[in-house]
Design a protein around this nucleic acid. Structure first.
Lengths: 199, 199
DNA sequence: TTATCGACTAAAACATAAAAATAGTCTAAT
DNA sequence: ATTAGACTATTTTTATGTTTTAGTCGATAA
């Protein structure tokens, strides 16, 4: 790893901790600089602005999650198991980075356009991953033949459903355990609850 | 209808319009009183506080929706159709009272505890309705035999999924039509996407 | 007794200006 | 190529006085 890459990593690590604790506005450039053991103006050698540091932190975190999810999916063999691994890994990250997620949500609410873009890009990646799982299941014969359009919509609906399942966490937090519902959600999507009349 | 019930209805109607437009804090008691053609202090004869007027407006709206959903469900015969009617009616109301919903969300965000309680009570009612539909489907043989616990969790997951499906509306609004996804959601819940190996 | 309101008060929201903190620049020194 | 100290223009905070507003009370009429 290059020296400057190391420093950037250092800056981002400290910044992540600070942003998670105090949010975007309440974290000052001087605090970030101190945490990295540098002078304030040095930060501007590596980043053009505070916002871009924040964006880098968030993007970093998302790449991280995508990576983890990828690994978890590849470990599993059946499409059904892949779906469960997908949901489980996502949940872990939501719990682990709850604070940062809250800050991102806040900033989106505050109209920080760039944050919304990043979030949407990440949502799209999630949908693509689910699409991939569905296609994999169709190919292996685990799922029935589904037209492309159906795969498209079904993967979107799955992600949306998952988000809904987690949103109680944002409001209630802590006492509600959505893990319980993953298996049911996946089982229902795969097997349905109907009495097997259809082709 | 009693005279005072009529006046209360009048007050709530005007208050609903005002709250929808300007939110809780920016709507004054004097405005509400003017809208009802009464003096400000007269409001306190009917309601103990501004918050309670707001709560009454919200509760009123929710009772209204539950009523509508009930009617829509009863019209349909199959459980599948009932589920679709349930989702469709809910969506209509979300669209119709988008402003008021936003205000409620805002107030929950602002830590108005009572609002959260009302919302949760209403969520529970929704879950109960879904439970009822599922049981109805089991009884008619449309769905397979499901243990009570499964019905419980499945109805919860359905409502959560539905909420997730609608939440893009809150962020993106307008261009995204979630109706498209209802049929797929319901069809998937009922029939699944698996290749019919399971009992 | 039931319903209404005008006058009142205490608390909250708003406006404003002065003071302090902060993001970002620039230049000089490694 | 990297760092930081001194600087500035912009925000935030603070302190202050003023206005608005929720909620009370006693009087009044039906």
């Amino acid at each position: 790893m290059q020296k400057d890459e190391l420093i950037i990593k250092d800056i981002l690590e400290g910044a992540k901790r600070l942003f998670s604790r105090h949010g975007l506005k309440k974290t000052t450039m001087e605090e970030i600089a101190d945490a990295a053991g540098k002078g304030k103006s040095t930060l501007y050698y590596y980043f053009p602005s505070k916002n871009e540091i924040f964006e880098a932190v968030v993007e970093d975190e998302m790449k991280n999650l995508i990576q983890k999810v990828r690994v978890a999916i590849n470990k599993e063999t059946t499409a059904k198991q892949k779906m469960k691994a997908f949901l489980g890994t996502n949940l872990s990250s939501i719990l682990e980075y709850h604070n940062l997620n809250m800050v991102v949500k806040e900033e989106i609410h505050n109209g920080l356009k760039k944050m919304l873009q990043i979030k949407q890009k990440y949502d799209q990646t999630q949908i693509d991953m689910m699409k991939e799982i569905l296609k994999c299941g169709v190919q292996s014969g685990e799922f029935r033949e589904l037209p492309e359009e159906m795969i498209e919509k079904c993967s979107f609906a799955s992600i949306a459903a998952f988000r809904g399942l987690n949103s109680p966490l944002s409001v209630t937090m802590c006492d509600f355990k959505s893990e319980q519902y993953f298996d049911i959600l996946v089982d229902t999507i795969v097997d349905g609850i109907g009495s097997q009349k259809k082709k």
